[in-house]
Amino acid sequence: MTNEVILQVKDLKTYFTVDEGLVKAVDGVSFDLHKGETLGIVGESGSGKSVTNLSVINLIPTPPGKIAGGQVLFHGKDLLAMPQAEIRQIRGNKISMIFQDPMTSLNPFLKVSTQMIETIVLHQGLDKDAAKQKAIEMLKLAGIPAPEKRIDQYPHQFSGGMRQRVMIAMSLSCNPEILIADEPTSALDVTIQAQILEIMQELTKRLGTAVILITHSLGVVAGTCDTLCVMYAGRIVERGPTDVIFEDPKHPYTKGLIRSVPRLDVENSERLYSIQGQPPNVIDLPDCCPFYPRCEKAMDICKKKYPAIANFEQGRAVSCWLYSGAKDE
């Protein structure tokens, strides 16, 4: 990890118009991604993790979605203001993606070779034979046995774990600078998850790729990410180095989340902590802290205004009145 920032997300806002009102799926998200860094985004379903990353690569379906504000600077150029033709040169090339379900993100009608060669020819300007060689090489790196035979098979002939390896090989075949992995192991069993995470870490380290890893699993984050963003109801509530956040979580939501996961390595004879209540409905959210109805430390101010970001040492930032109150009032 170096200090060079390659991706800068500034105050990103993505809204969806639905019959019931306006869904602020992402509401003012900012973060920086450094070269070679692995950044984790955790949150529960509906917290806006996936929408954040679809917005980064400008893949929000419009309508009903709309990027309502903010900037995504990739080497200083705003991806959101770029014409489609230009961003297509970046998507899949400099910034590539892996999705949760490898069966729906691979085309079932096309051989793996066809799908991989297409990307490589398009972005790297190699001829077909060279592209196929490159594809086989990538499959081999991703740990697929007998890649020269497997490459001519169809996606259904691969198991779930193997398909995810194909996705990894495909997404890394153009030496991207950023890999966005959206719940890459959530559909897989633990032993396969361990294989996939290991291969992903090893390959991205070797190629110097920065990774944005979206997941709901705190365990996955703890083992793989350098920095961590915790999302709740469309906003980042806490951000900082992973080990520091786990050591000393500041936001009540982060604290609760970490305490409510049962752990394998601890004698947990006592009762598991649980956060009361339900995640909020994100339709027409009022402009206050969305966590206050579930928060043990809620104060009057929490019901009135969204807390400003309080900055701490080591690049930590927390959005909570417990920390930002004193300075503002």
Partner: peptide, 23 residues
């Protein structure tokens, strides 16, 4: 057991995984 992730970076950094091959 060794494949199951533990939500603690300190523990994770010191763990040795038994990675099973194959499906």
């Amino acid at each position: 057991l060794s494949a199951a992730p533990i939500p603690d970076p300190k523990v994770e950094a010191q763990r040795r995984r038994i990675i099973l091959t194959g499906d």
